[in-house]
């Protein structure tokens, strides 16, 4: 037990076994109680209904576009090429042989079903997950850029940079994200899109207002993290760099920031995990990210317990991956 580093003396082997077992018991108890409670309210668990919201098999009907006679059906290895000869025009479709509904010589009108085929499509939950991922990635990238710039401006000598940074940080940190999202969508969004419409330009989709709301919100927090990181680097580092003749920008880029970024990775990870979770608010401006998608699924499936649990697990998947990725960066940076 010589590797023991605590200050209270080594614990016995049983100490860890007993408390470890107690933890597992507590975990099982909590899950058991939850299950028991759902039985009491007569909830019927139907986990088999969940997979269809991830992937499902879609049936597509193939319809004719012209009026005419099926002149030829050429069958090759399960696929049939159906050719329709109309009045001076011709069209052909490829249909799986076993799903073919009509035969050679049949007369068809536009909109008649020739046959069907099935293919796999991603479900609404996966769509929502991908959108959440997209919004989060974009917001993280913009958030880092805004945060880095604002963090540097926050400690600059120039009053306009410093005061702008302080005003920005205080305003953003002092108001609720939900209100900011509404402001971006209903105020900024309306103004921009109305102006674009007046000049005959295409509209900016709500996604971008959502991304900007998240990025600007995260940027304010990131700025303070960056500032704290820079200020945590010993003063002597800047003095050493400057005494060698480097200017402020060179010293900052080559000496201070590399050391600061290494230290701020853990709080940055926390910030970006928050951002992924905060993206669940974007449903209110009709961006169908994971939470909004889940709400729609719950409405149609009437299985709220399963779907909301799945939703939470999907968010966990995203945040856990991000957390692992940052830990990997941290190890690599040392």
């Amino acid at each position: 037990m010589s590797s023991y580093t605590g200050l209270d003396g080594p614990k016995s082997k049983h100490y860890y076994r007993i408390w470890g077992a107690t933890f597992l018991f507590g975990l099982c108890l909590a899950m058991g109680l939850l299950y028991y409670a759902t039985i009491q309210v007569e909830y019927t668990w139907r986990w088999n209904r969940v997979p269809q919201y991830f992937f499902y098999e879609n049936t597509v009907e193939i319809r004719t576009n012209i009026e005419g006679e099926i002149s030829n059906i050429q069958k090759t290895s399960g696929q049939a090429t159906v050719t329709i000869q109309g009045n001076g025009e011709e069209e052909s479709h490829i249909i799986p042989v076993q799903n073919l509904l009509l035969g050679q010589g049949d007369y068809v009108y536009p909109g008649d079903t020739l046959g069907t085929y099935k293919h796999w499509k991603i479900g609404i939950l996966i769509e929502g997950l991908l959108l959440t991922l997209e919004v989060s990635c974009l917001a993280i990238i913009f958030g880092i850029l805004i945060g880095l710039f604002t963090g540097l401006a926050r400690i600059a000598d120039n009053p306009i940079l410093r005061w702008s940074a302080i005003v920005y940080i205080e305003i953003i940190r002092g108001s609720p994200l939900l209100v900011q999202i509404f402001l971006w969508y209903f105020v900024v969004g309306t103004v921009i899109n109305t102006m674009l419409a007046q000049y005959g330009l295409s509209q900016v989709p709500p996604l971008w207002f959502g991304v900007m709301a998240l990025a600007i919100f995260t940027g304010a927090y990131t700025a303070e993290i960056v500032r704290a990181g820079i200020q945590s680097v010993h003063r002597g580092q800047m003095e050493a760099a400057r005494s060698l003749g480097m200017n402020y920008a060179q010293a900052m880029r080559k000496v201070i920031l590399p050391q600061a970024l290494r230290r701020i990775l853990p709080p940055l990870a926390g910030q970006f995990i928050s951002l992924v979770k905060d993206s669940s608010l974007l449903g209110v401006i009709s961006i169908r990210e994971l939470t909004k998608a889940t709400r729609e699924v719950v409405t149609s499936s009437l299985q709220p317990f399963e779907i909301w649990i799945v939703c939470a697990i999907l968010y966990l998947l995203l945040t856990f991956t991000l957390s692992m990725f940052v830990q990997y960066l941290e190890r690599k940076a040392i």
Partner: peptide, 14 residues
């Protein structure tokens, strides 16, 4: 400063 080298008490290596 490029012409004036400085050595610190706490080294201040990068």
């Amino acid at each position: 400063r490029a012409e004036v080298g400085m050595v610190f008490q706490s080294f201040n290596l990068f």
